[in-house]
Amino acid sequence: MVKLGLTGGIGSGKSTVAKIFEEFNIPVYYADDRAKWLMNQPKIRSKIVQQFGKEAYNKGKLDRAFLANLVFKNRKALEALNGIVHPEVGKDFDNWSNYQKSQILVKEAAVLIESGAKDSVDEIVVVTAPAKTRMKRVMARDGVSEQQVVDRLNNQMTDKQRLKYADYVIDNSGEQMLIPQVKRLLEDVRRKYHLK
């Protein structure tokens, strides 16, 4: 079983690329979505409340706006949150992987490299797009201000830093079609690992 780690900066289009992998019948583990789910489970919830106070939850659900406001402006708070969530996501991914029958899996994660999750995959796929394009996408998608996007970008690796770890790069600038890029990548992985 070959595990591909799929990552990219906010607004790069990694979720779109993940959907294309699914079209090729490759199971995808969405780490960010699972993290949101896990953060509402009792074990993690109690740790988050202990660290950030009861305000982190509103009517029994994680108050993502409250937490985002705290962590995207304070690196220590972000590190504390990541220290709570990332190990649990890692365990959840391992558990999920054990139930998959496919020869290739994808773990889609925004902070794959920064969280250390890169060590749980065999190959790293980085999705890139120009910063201006990414900003426009995030502002349209999340209904946030340019400054809020800048705050998020400032808490992430740059594409240049991410590319140092890349085994494969998917260009999502709009200049190349995505499906042929994913198809070529899968063909290469199958050749490299002698898969059918």
Rank of each mutant, 00 (worst) to 15 (best):
A68V: 05
T16R: 10
N74H: 14
R64D: 05
L78M: 15
N98T: 01
G90P: 07
E55S: 13
K59H: 13
A109M: 10
G53S: 09
Q50A: 10
A35I: 11
K36T: 04
N40R: 05
V49H: 03
V71G: 11
H86T: 09
P87S: 06
Q41E: 14
G53A: 05
V106P: 08
F24I: 01
N82Q: 14
I48W: 03
I84N: 09
L67W: 02
V106L: 02
E55D: 14
G60M: 09
D32L: 13
E22D: 08
N58R: 15
A65Q: 14
P87F: 00
I44D: 10
F72V: 10
K59E: 15
F21V: 01
E108T: 05
K61V: 15
E114I: 04
L105V: 01
Q100S: 08
F66A: 07
A31L: 10
I26G: 04
A77G: 07
K118A: 10
G13E: 04
A77M: 11
L81M: 12
A109W: 01
K118W: 13
W96Q: 05
T16D: 09
A117K: 04
I26L: 05
Y29K: 00
F52D: 12
G53I: 04
Y99R: 15
I104P: 11
Q51A: 15
S102N: 13
K14P: 14
R75E: 15
P87T: 03
L62R: 00
N69G: 15
E108N: 09
E88A: 12
L78R: 10
F21Y: 00
S46T: 14
A35L: 11
K14F: 02
L78W: 03
F93N: 03
M39N: 06
N82W: 00
T16F: 12
Q51E: 15
N40L: 09
A68S: 14
P27D: 02
I20T: 01
D32R: 02
I26N: 03
I26Y: 00
Q50W: 06
V28W: 00
F72S: 11
N25E: 15
L105T: 01
Q103M: 06
Q51L: 11
K19I: 08
Y29I: 03
Q103V: 06
V85C: 08
G90N: 08
F52S: 12
V49C: 09
V17P: 13
L70S: 07
I48C: 13
P27E: 02
E22T: 11
Y57A: 13
G83R: 08
M39T: 06
L67T: 03
A68Q: 03
I104S: 05
K101D: 12
V17L: 03
V17Y: 00
Q100V: 08
